[in-house]
Protein backbone atom coordinates (compact mmCIF):
# COMPACT_ATOMS: atom_id res chain seq x y z
CA UNK A 1 0.00 0.00 0.00
CA UNK A 2 1.39 3.31 -1.07
CA UNK A 3 -0.43 6.19 0.63
CA UNK A 4 0.30 8.55 -2.30
CA UNK A 5 -0.97 8.75 -5.90
CA UNK A 6 0.45 6.95 -8.89
CA UNK A 7 3.47 8.74 -10.30
CA UNK A 8 4.49 10.50 -7.07
CA UNK A 9 7.97 10.10 -5.54
CA UNK A 10 7.07 7.30 -3.10
CA UNK A 11 5.06 5.46 -5.75
CA UNK A 12 8.01 5.62 -8.17
CA UNK A 13 10.29 4.00 -5.59
CA UNK A 14 7.76 1.25 -4.95
CA UNK A 15 7.26 0.52 -8.64
CA UNK A 16 11.01 0.35 -9.07
CA UNK A 17 11.56 -2.05 -6.15
CA UNK A 18 8.35 -4.13 -6.48
CA UNK A 19 9.42 -6.30 -9.44
CA UNK A 20 12.84 -6.93 -7.86
CA UNK A 21 11.17 -7.93 -4.57
CA UNK A 22 9.09 -10.44 -6.53
CA UNK A 23 12.30 -12.20 -7.65
CA UNK A 24 13.35 -12.71 -4.03
CA UNK A 25 9.90 -13.50 -2.63
CA UNK A 26 8.94 -15.81 -5.48
CA UNK A 27 5.49 -14.25 -5.36
CA UNK A 28 3.76 -11.19 -6.68
CA UNK A 29 3.91 -7.67 -5.25
CA UNK A 30 0.81 -5.64 -6.11
CA UNK A 31 0.96 -1.90 -5.58
CA UNK A 32 -2.24 -0.44 -4.18
CA UNK A 33 -2.37 3.36 -4.07
CA UNK A 34 -4.53 4.74 -1.25
CA UNK A 35 -3.82 8.47 -1.39
CA UNK A 36 -5.40 11.18 0.74
CA UNK A 37 -5.01 13.33 3.84
CA UNK A 38 -1.26 13.69 3.33
CA UNK A 39 -0.78 9.87 3.48
CA UNK A 40 -2.81 9.48 6.71
CA UNK A 41 -5.83 7.91 4.98
CA UNK A 42 -3.77 5.06 3.53
CA UNK A 43 -1.91 4.52 6.80
CA UNK A 44 -5.18 4.43 8.71
CA UNK A 45 -6.45 1.85 6.21
CA UNK A 46 -3.28 -0.21 6.71
CA UNK A 47 -3.89 -0.18 10.46
CA UNK A 48 -7.10 -2.19 9.96
CA UNK A 49 -5.65 -4.85 7.63
CA UNK A 50 -4.83 -8.52 8.37
CA UNK A 51 -1.60 -9.11 10.29
CA UNK A 52 -0.41 -12.09 8.22
CA UNK A 53 2.10 -10.17 6.13
CA UNK A 54 0.03 -10.11 2.92
CA UNK A 55 -0.41 -6.36 3.30
CA UNK A 56 2.30 -3.86 4.16
CA UNK A 57 2.90 -0.25 3.27
CA UNK A 58 5.45 2.51 2.83
CA UNK A 59 5.24 5.59 5.05
CA UNK A 60 7.58 8.56 4.93
CA UNK A 61 9.09 8.88 8.41
CA UNK A 62 8.79 11.35 10.15
CA UNK A 63 6.30 13.10 7.86
CA UNK A 64 3.41 10.79 8.83
CA UNK A 65 4.15 11.10 12.54
CA UNK A 66 4.11 14.88 12.04
CA UNK A 67 0.74 14.74 10.29
CA UNK A 68 -0.66 12.35 12.90
CA UNK A 69 0.41 14.67 15.72
CA UNK A 70 -0.88 17.83 14.07
CA UNK A 71 -4.27 16.27 13.23
CA UNK A 72 -4.61 14.99 16.79
CA UNK A 73 -5.72 11.50 15.70
CA UNK A 74 -6.96 9.38 18.63
CA UNK A 75 -8.01 6.17 16.89
CA UNK A 76 -4.51 4.78 16.43
CA UNK A 77 -0.88 5.50 17.36
CA UNK A 78 2.17 5.38 15.07
CA UNK A 79 3.85 2.94 17.48
CA UNK A 80 1.03 0.42 16.79
CA UNK A 81 2.64 -0.45 13.47
CA UNK A 82 5.32 -3.14 13.12
CA UNK A 83 8.61 -2.16 11.44
CA UNK A 84 9.94 -4.04 8.39
CA UNK A 85 12.76 -1.99 6.85
CA UNK A 86 13.51 1.28 5.14
CA UNK A 87 14.59 1.57 1.55
CA UNK A 88 15.13 5.17 0.52
CA UNK A 89 15.95 8.66 1.78
CA UNK A 90 14.87 12.08 0.57
CA UNK A 91 14.50 15.50 2.11
CA UNK A 92 14.45 19.24 1.77
CA UNK A 93 16.75 21.85 0.25
CA UNK A 94 16.30 25.58 -0.23
CA UNK A 95 16.06 26.79 -3.82
CA UNK A 96 16.69 30.38 -4.89
CA UNK A 97 16.06 32.35 -8.08
CA UNK A 98 19.47 33.23 -9.59
CA UNK A 99 18.54 36.90 -9.99
CA UNK A 100 18.99 37.20 -6.25
CA UNK A 101 22.71 36.43 -6.72
CA UNK A 102 22.91 34.14 -3.70
CA UNK A 103 25.09 31.03 -3.67
CA UNK A 104 25.04 29.75 -0.09
CA UNK A 105 23.01 30.01 3.11
CA UNK A 106 25.02 32.85 4.70
CA UNK A 107 24.46 35.03 1.62
CA UNK A 108 20.76 34.20 1.84
CA UNK A 109 20.72 35.27 5.51
CA UNK A 110 22.29 38.57 4.44
CA UNK A 111 19.80 39.05 1.62
CA UNK A 112 16.90 38.76 4.08
CA UNK A 113 18.64 40.92 6.70
CA UNK A 114 19.26 43.66 4.08
CA UNK A 115 15.64 43.53 2.90
CA UNK A 116 16.58 42.40 -0.62
CA UNK A 117 13.95 39.71 -0.25
CA UNK A 118 10.98 39.43 2.17
CA UNK A 119 9.06 36.28 1.35
CA UNK A 120 9.76 32.57 1.72
CA UNK A 121 7.74 29.91 -0.16
CA UNK A 122 6.61 26.70 1.52
CA UNK A 123 4.31 23.85 0.48
CA UNK A 124 1.11 24.59 2.39
CA UNK A 125 -0.32 25.78 5.67
CA UNK A 126 0.32 23.21 8.39
CA UNK A 127 2.74 21.31 6.14
CA UNK A 128 6.06 20.16 7.62
CA UNK A 129 7.80 22.63 5.29
CA UNK A 130 5.75 25.38 6.98
CA UNK A 131 7.18 24.40 10.39
CA UNK A 132 10.66 24.31 8.86
CA UNK A 133 10.11 27.87 7.62
CA UNK A 134 9.45 28.97 11.20
CA UNK A 135 12.42 26.97 12.51
CA UNK A 136 14.71 28.57 9.92
CA UNK A 137 13.68 32.00 11.15
CA UNK A 138 13.80 31.19 14.87
CA UNK A 139 16.97 29.14 14.98
CA UNK A 140 18.98 29.81 11.80
CA UNK A 141 18.61 33.61 11.44
CA UNK A 142 16.66 33.55 8.21
CA UNK A 143 14.67 36.74 8.72
CA UNK A 144 11.80 36.39 6.25
CA UNK A 145 8.78 38.63 6.75
CA UNK A 146 6.11 36.38 5.26
CA UNK A 147 6.07 32.64 4.75
CA UNK A 148 3.95 32.28 1.61
CA UNK A 149 1.84 29.12 1.29
CA UNK A 150 1.70 27.38 -2.09
CA UNK A 151 -0.18 24.22 -2.97
CA UNK A 152 2.63 21.65 -3.00
CA UNK A 153 6.15 21.38 -4.35
CA UNK A 154 5.29 22.01 -7.99
CA UNK A 155 3.82 25.42 -7.24
CA UNK A 156 6.77 26.39 -5.04
CA UNK A 157 9.11 25.52 -7.93
CA UNK A 158 7.07 27.68 -10.27
CA UNK A 159 6.99 30.62 -7.85
CA UNK A 160 10.76 30.50 -7.41
CA UNK A 161 11.43 30.11 -11.15
CA UNK A 162 9.15 33.05 -12.03
CA UNK A 163 10.54 35.12 -9.16
CA UNK A 164 7.11 35.71 -7.59
CA UNK A 165 8.57 34.36 -4.35
CA UNK A 166 12.27 34.01 -5.17
CA UNK A 167 13.21 31.68 -2.30
CA UNK A 168 11.50 28.46 -1.29
CA UNK A 169 11.73 24.96 0.09
CA UNK A 170 11.87 21.95 -2.22
CA UNK A 171 12.68 18.23 -1.91
CA UNK A 172 16.03 17.19 -3.38
CA UNK A 173 14.42 15.56 -6.45
CA UNK A 174 12.06 18.46 -7.10
CA UNK A 175 14.97 20.91 -6.60
CA UNK A 176 16.83 19.03 -9.35
CA UNK A 177 13.88 19.67 -11.69
CA UNK A 178 13.80 23.37 -10.76
CA UNK A 179 17.56 23.72 -11.34
CA UNK A 180 17.09 22.15 -14.80
CA UNK A 181 14.87 25.10 -15.73
CA UNK A 182 18.04 27.20 -15.89
CA UNK A 183 17.51 30.13 -13.54
CA UNK A 184 17.29 28.49 -10.12
CA UNK A 185 19.97 27.10 -7.78
CA UNK A 186 19.75 24.79 -4.77
CA UNK A 187 21.83 26.59 -2.17
CA UNK A 188 21.59 24.60 1.03
CA UNK A 189 20.87 21.00 1.99
CA UNK A 190 18.57 20.80 5.02
CA UNK A 191 19.16 17.04 5.46
CA UNK A 192 22.12 15.24 6.99
CA UNK A 193 22.42 12.85 4.03
CA UNK A 194 24.56 14.11 1.14
CA UNK A 195 22.87 14.73 -2.20
CA UNK A 196 24.83 13.32 -5.15
CA UNK A 197 23.04 15.65 -7.56
CA UNK A 198 24.43 18.71 -5.70
CA UNK A 199 27.94 17.75 -4.54
CA UNK A 200 28.97 21.37 -3.80
CA UNK A 201 25.89 22.43 -1.86
CA UNK A 202 26.10 24.24 1.50
CA UNK A 203 24.92 22.31 4.61
CA UNK A 204 22.47 23.71 7.17
CA UNK A 205 24.54 22.00 9.90
CA UNK A 206 27.22 24.67 9.26
CA UNK A 207 24.79 27.15 10.81
CA UNK A 208 23.31 25.24 13.75
CA UNK A 209 22.05 21.86 14.90
CA UNK A 210 20.80 19.19 12.55
CA UNK A 211 17.28 19.71 11.19
CA UNK A 212 17.04 16.09 10.00
CA UNK A 213 14.38 15.23 12.62
CA UNK A 214 11.90 17.11 10.40
CA UNK A 215 13.63 17.71 7.04
CA UNK A 216 14.90 14.23 6.15
CA UNK A 217 12.55 11.35 5.34
CA UNK A 218 13.02 7.60 5.25
CA UNK A 219 10.70 5.49 3.14
CA UNK A 220 9.84 3.09 5.90
CA UNK A 221 8.03 -0.17 5.22
CA UNK A 222 5.53 -0.89 7.98
CA UNK A 223 3.08 -3.73 8.65
CA UNK A 224 -0.31 -3.77 10.41
CA UNK A 225 -0.20 -4.17 14.21
CA UNK A 226 0.55 -7.74 15.29
CA UNK A 227 2.31 -8.90 12.09
CA UNK A 228 4.81 -11.59 13.27
CA UNK A 229 8.54 -10.95 13.03
CA UNK A 230 9.40 -13.96 10.81
CA UNK A 231 7.00 -12.75 8.14
CA UNK A 232 8.41 -9.24 8.36
CA UNK A 233 11.96 -10.61 8.14
CA UNK A 234 11.11 -12.31 4.82
CA UNK A 235 9.80 -9.02 3.49
CA UNK A 236 12.86 -7.17 4.79
CA UNK A 237 15.14 -9.63 2.96
CA UNK A 238 13.25 -9.00 -0.27
CA UNK A 239 13.50 -5.24 0.25
CA UNK A 240 17.25 -5.54 0.86
CA UNK A 241 17.64 -7.60 -2.31
CA UNK A 242 15.70 -4.99 -4.31
CA UNK A 243 17.24 -1.84 -2.82
CA UNK A 244 20.81 -3.08 -3.25
CA UNK A 245 20.23 -4.58 -6.72
CA UNK A 246 22.37 -3.10 -9.53
CA UNK A 247 19.29 -2.31 -11.58
CA UNK A 248 17.77 -0.27 -8.74
CA UNK A 249 21.04 1.48 -7.96
CA UNK A 250 21.41 2.44 -11.62
CA UNK A 251 17.90 3.90 -11.59
CA UNK A 252 18.71 5.85 -8.41
CA UNK A 253 21.84 7.35 -9.96
CA UNK A 254 20.04 8.34 -13.15
CA UNK A 255 17.12 9.98 -11.39
CA UNK A 256 18.89 11.57 -8.40
CA UNK A 257 16.95 9.43 -5.92
CA UNK A 258 18.74 8.01 -2.87
CA UNK A 259 18.36 4.27 -2.16
CA UNK A 260 19.47 3.24 1.31
CA UNK A 261 18.59 0.00 3.03
CA UNK A 262 17.88 -0.19 6.77
CA UNK A 263 17.02 -3.54 8.37
CA UNK A 264 14.23 -4.40 10.80
CA UNK A 265 16.13 -3.08 13.82
CA UNK A 266 17.15 0.14 12.10
CA UNK A 267 13.54 0.69 11.04
CA UNK A 268 12.36 -0.02 14.60
CA UNK A 269 14.78 2.50 16.08
CA UNK A 270 13.75 5.03 13.48
CA UNK A 271 10.04 4.58 14.20
CA UNK A 272 10.57 4.74 17.96
CA UNK A 273 12.65 7.88 17.78
CA UNK A 274 10.76 9.87 15.14
CA UNK A 275 7.81 11.06 17.21
CA UNK A 276 9.95 11.73 20.31
CA UNK A 277 12.39 13.82 18.27
CA UNK A 278 9.52 15.85 16.84
CA UNK A 279 7.96 16.44 20.27
CA UNK A 280 11.32 17.44 21.66
CA UNK A 281 12.11 19.98 18.93
CA UNK A 282 8.74 21.32 17.76
CA UNK A 283 6.24 23.07 20.01
CA UNK A 284 3.10 21.96 18.16
CA UNK A 285 0.68 24.07 20.20
CA UNK A 286 2.74 27.22 19.69
CA UNK A 287 3.03 26.43 15.98
CA UNK A 288 -0.75 26.14 15.61
CA UNK A 289 -1.22 29.43 17.45
CA UNK A 290 1.28 31.18 15.18
CA UNK A 291 -0.44 29.88 12.06
CA UNK A 292 -3.75 31.24 13.34
CA UNK A 293 -2.13 34.58 14.16
CA UNK A 294 -0.43 34.83 10.75
CA UNK A 295 -3.54 33.77 8.79
Amino acid sequence: MIPWSEGGGTDTYARQLGPLMEEELDGSVVIDNQPGAGSLRGIEWLHSQDDDGTVFGTANTPSWQFGWRLEGIDDWHPSDFEPIAYSGVFGYTIIVNDELGVSDFSELQDAYADGEVDNFAHQGTGHDSHVISYLLRDEYDLEWETAVAYDGGGEVNEAVISGETPVGIATNTSAADAVDSGNVSAIVNLMDTDIDAFPEIDQITNYGDSLAYISEFRQTQIAPPGTPEDVRQDLADAIEYAATHDEAQEWAEETGNVLEYGDIDAAADDLDGALDDLEENVDFEAFEERIDEDA
Binding site: G36, A37, L40, R41, L70, T125, I291
Partner: peptide, 19 residues
Protein backbone atom coordinates in the same frame (compact mmCIF):
# COMPACT_ATOMS: atom_id res chain seq x y z
CA UNK B 1 -12.05 19.25 3.14
CA UNK B 2 -9.07 20.76 4.88
CA UNK B 3 -8.85 24.51 4.27
CA UNK B 4 -5.90 25.78 2.25
CA UNK B 5 -5.31 28.89 4.39
CA UNK B 6 -5.70 27.70 7.93
CA UNK B 7 -5.64 24.55 9.97
CA UNK B 8 -9.43 24.39 9.83
CA UNK B 9 -11.05 21.23 8.56
CA UNK B 10 -14.48 21.41 7.01
CA UNK B 11 -16.75 18.35 7.22
CA UNK B 12 -13.80 16.06 7.87
CA UNK B 13 -15.09 13.90 10.69
CA UNK B 14 -14.15 11.08 8.34
CA UNK B 15 -10.65 11.07 6.88
CA UNK B 16 -12.28 10.04 3.59
CA UNK B 17 -13.35 13.67 3.07
CA UNK B 18 -10.09 15.20 4.26
CA UNK B 19 -9.03 16.22 0.73
Amino acid sequence: GSAPMSLDNRYTESMLLYD
